[in-house]
């Protein structure tokens, strides 16, 4: 089995007005199946651009990108859309749920655009299964504005999982969440990763990154550090410690 992500000498340049922005400058990266990687870096380091390329939302200006053994560097818009639908689940910082649409319908969204024909019952069944996985089965009919931030992000994760993708891409998934819900979300990621899903996430929070297995740090469009996480945090353990501490505060 080959790596799920293999990028080789990828460059990306933008033209913004008269200025040419060289956002990604020759990155090569290999991510194996079952890895849990955090891509870190200051804003402007090119991590979002890299993430867009990894997510097949954008094409590299030059270089090669193999996703699940498919060369996606020069696929057209529609082919990329198909790849996104089949192989990738997205989780965004701002959740990006459809407003005034129930959690279940939000989760069903990727199944609507599947190239395989999926019956309405099958869509519903899969959506419920995904919702159960993130522990929100009782919120199926709630609309995003009736859910807390943490719950919304869990719905978004369920949506990312519904087409059973090989790869989960998360762009600052905890950026809009408080500490406890952040840890809860990381707990879900750790659980999914344990089940074999490869996860790549962008974050600028060091403590969040330490829940992953591998940290890649970028600066000025290049990778400066790429190391395995030595003392990995366990979300479940951290959560129970946090709860103990809260209890102690209440008691005193």
């Amino acid at each position: 089995m080959n790596a799920i992500i293999e990028i080789d000498g990828v460059h990306k340049t933008y033209q913004t007005g008269d200025v040419q922005v060289h956002a990604v400058r020759g990155i090569s990266l290999r991510i194996e199946r079952g890895e849990f990687v955090a891509i870190m870096g200051a804003s402007g380091s090119g991590k979002s651009t890299l993430m867009n390329i990894l997510g097949c939302l954008d094409r590299p200006t030059s270089g090669r990108y193999l996703l699940d053994d498919i060369d996606v560097s020069d696929l057209d818009r529609d082919e990329l859309a198909e790849i996104r639908n089949e192989k990738i689940g997205f989780v965004f910082q701002g959740f990006n749920l459809l407003s005034r649409t129930s959690a279940l319908e939000n989760i069903e969204l990727p199944t609507l655009y599947s190239s395989k024909t999926i019956s309405a019952e099958e869509q519903r069944r899969r959506a419920l299964e995904a919702l159960e996985l993130v522990g929100l089965k009782d919120r199926a009919d709630h609309q995003p504005n009736q859910l807390s931030g943490g719950q919304q992000q869990r719905v978004a994760i369920a949506r990312a999982l519904v087409n059973e993708p090989r790869l989960l891409l998360a762009d600052e998934p905890t950026g809009n969440l408080d500490t406890q819900t952040s840890i809860e979300v990381m707990g879900i990621f750790q659980k999914l990763n344990a089940q074999g899903i490869t996860i790549v996430m962008v974050t600028h929070e060091l403590d969040i990154a330490s829940y992953t297995k591998r940290n890649v740090i970028m600066r000025d469009g290049q990778i400066v550090t790429d190391k395995l996480v030595a003392d990995r945090l366990n979300a479940e353990k951290e959560l129970s410690e946090l709860r103990e501490a809260q209890k102690a505060i209440k008691l005193s």
Partner: peptide, 16 residues
């Protein structure tokens, strides 16, 4: 626009 972006991200093609 954002809704369109979401739909495209999860695999909607131009013709959809």
């Amino acid at each position: 626009t954002r809704e369109i972006g979401i739909r495209m991200a999860v695999g909607a093609k131009g013709k959809d």
